[in-house]
Amino acid sequence: MWDLTTKETASVQEHENVLHIKGLKKSFGKKEVLRDIDLDVKRGENVVVLGKSGSGKSVIIQCIVGMISPDAGVLQVFGEEVSSLNEKELKKLRTRIGFLFQSGALYDSMTVRENMEFPLMRILKLRNQAEIDKRVEEVLKSVGLFESIDKMPSDLSGGMRKRAGLARTLVLNPELMLYDEPTTGLDPITSREISNLVLQIQKKYKTTAIIITHDMECAAITADRVLVLSDGEFIAEGSFEAIKNSKDKHVSSFFK
């Protein structure tokens, strides 16, 4: 298993771009959600996609993991065209991508520990209980949730669920992290904690991240680069400061 991971890391270094999107289009019925999306993400970069609710920003990351197949365009992850992958290859690709859902999506019939063990046992096929315990404890400590290890998800607060959800994606050591609205539904203080956590994770696990959000504070904390999505197109790109000072009417409307 560890051999495989190092090999994969090597392959990532070969392709400077972790993600390459060109001319991506997707429409649901008559509604064009994504019109023409171009996006390149370099390794180790934190990219924030800003957009209003319903602007189709979640659709981008759902296309990246193959949950939604795009109508047209190039979508390469780790140099592989997602739409051309068969089921087995897609599964393998997904193990290298971490996806944090808006709600955390903890399996509510299992304790936090079992939630962590689930992907370890099923995807990495680990059988050694000591090793599983070690990895679970390590990842829970890094998100600050070690004391809740044997709690049920229903006993956790919203922020703790986000942390647990994050831990569950991190336990597989993903190279690319996709965050879907990581701070939605949280109070400002917890939001800030989570945003800082995202940043810490990026440093500790050396992941590449795409963060979908409409929370400016989150963007300010986490972003290396910000893209603004409006009507299915990126209307602005740059550092958070540059975007903040933009004269564009649509872009500046986010900061009011």
């Binding site: 949950m67 997904r94 991508i97 808006q102 999506a105 509510d108 995807i123 959800g165 994606t169």
Partner: peptide, 15 residues
């Protein structure tokens, strides 16, 4: 589980 994205999460994690 579908509504709370647990099934999606399972699928996306490769399980």
């Amino acid at each position: 589980m579908k509504v709370t994205e647990q099934i999606d999460a399972m699928e996306v994690s490769g399980a």
